[in-house]
Design a protein around this nucleic acid. Structure first.
Lengths: 147, 147
DNA sequence: GGTAATCCTGACAACATAAGTAGGATTTAC
DNA sequence: GTAAATCCTACTTATGTTGTCAGGATTACC
């Protein structure tokens, strides 16, 4: 039961964007070097996040990415689902017919997992995560995103 | 974010074992045909569940598998972890050092997911799931496991 | 003892996904 | 025009998933 590195990288990247209080576009290279993420890979992730409507791209020199919505209105669930697709733990979790004619005793287990997962991820928003990140960066001497 | 079919099949199989009130060993073939699971694949799953101490095997003719413990004492979490290994949603969920020196703003997200997942799966025990299965089988005319 | 049922083990294969890499095309600030 | 940046597509290497297959070991029953 794993999420892929895409979610991990993507969430870190969006946290950085949320921490950029000056609202200037932040380049992929910036984020990649600061958070130690392979540049070309991160480019792909941000491209899909753009297609999913979570960030907007600013092309050309001094371009980069900006959050498409307020940081309070983007949850970790939004990020994960944008990158991983709909998160169903198994085939049989109530999202689609199970193939067992509804007489599947295991179904409530997977359904509960599914909804709880969504609920937990939905509790975290980028604004509060960014605040936490700024604190960390200040104490560890990392060049903070808003500079 | 998916569990593999192993968990789905394995849980269904153990529910059947838990529903066998007469405590006679149930063959892999029985379960495979009743729940529509590929036989050879299910054999492998039950073999690992045996190695993990969840079931005991009875070899030879009229052999099969029996739950190793009382059905109340085996949770869906036990089954899933036995088949999938420890379930950490990402590298960075507090199980092992994150590589970011503890200054990872995303960590609480993955930690919360991890613990909640375990908590939810731990709530379901085989005894109650088996009871539900018996009800379903009775109404849909499936030959119930205890016959 | 023979036979059939059953578990046990290991190898193999087809397919999908993960985690990148590489290279070029396009846009824009200067 | 040039450099900095996004954008897009394809390729690659490794691993995991979902099985299948062949045979061997063990046991109940006649």
């Amino acid at each position: 039961m794993r999420l892929s590195a895409k979610s991990e990288y993507g969430l870190l990247a969006l946290i950085d964007l949320a921490a950029a209080v000056d609202r200037a576009p932040m380049s992929t290279r910036d984020i990649a070097t600061r958070r130690d993420i392979p540049l070309a890979f991160l480019e792909q992730l941000l491209a899909t996040l753009r297609r999913e409507g979570l960030v907007t791209a600013v092309r050309g020199a001094h371009g980069g990415f900006v959050l498409a919505r307020d940081a309070h209105d983007i949850s970790a669930l939004d990020v994960v689902e944008a990158l991983e697709g709909p998160l169903s733990p198994t085939v049989c979790d109530g999202q689609e017919p199970c193939g067992r004619g509804g007489a599947c005793a295991a179904e409530p287990v997977w359904m509960q997992v599914s909804t709880t997962l969504r609920e937990v991820l939905g509790r975290f928003d980028l604004a509060s995560l960014a605040q936490r990140q700024l604190l960390f960066d200040a104490t560890t001497g990392v060049t903070t995103p808003e500079e």
